[in-house]
């Protein structure tokens, strides 16, 4: 009985975790702006999965890149990190500030693809 209970419990926990984590993925609707002390704009709207599906992005590193010595590392991605771990508020040398990293990442791609929002208020919706 104990074993059964243990298995059942761990299964249940596992399922709940799996579901909630899946929810959290589905539920990413904005870009976390907690790193900003005094954010001037509303956090940018960004529905992660829907966006990637619509944009046909499979490779996480498309956005979650890793740079070393100013070079982008192939086959490495950083989805386990938060952007602000590398991109600080000020930016330094070749490393863009957090704001600029977000903007160039989103808007840069939108401009290149000629798809997606490019004006301030299209992402920072009031």
């Amino acid at each position: 009985m104990k074993t059964v209970t243990r298995i059942a419990l761990s299964l249940a926990i596992g399922i709940v975790l799996a579901i909630t984590s899946a929810w959290s993925q589905d539920d990413m609707t904005i870009v976390d702006n907690a790193a900003f002390d005094n954010p001037q704009r509303t956090p940018s709207v960004f529905v992660h999965d829907a966006h990637n599906e619509a944009a046909g992005i499979d490779d996480c590193a498309e956005c979650h890149h890793v740079y070393e010595d100013g070079k982008r590392l192939e086959d490495e991605s950083s989805e386990d990190q938060s952007c602000s771990e590398c991109h600080d508020l000020k930016g330094s040398g070749g490393q863009p500030s957090l704001i600029k990293a977000f903007h160039t990442s989103c808007k840069g791609c939108h401009q290149a693809q000629k798809k997606g929002p490019i004006m301030c208020g299209e992402c920072h919706i009031k």
Partner: peptide, 9 residues
Amino acid sequence: AYHQWLSYP
């Protein structure tokens, strides 16, 4: 535009 009143774009 800042307040996103009327048609923003």
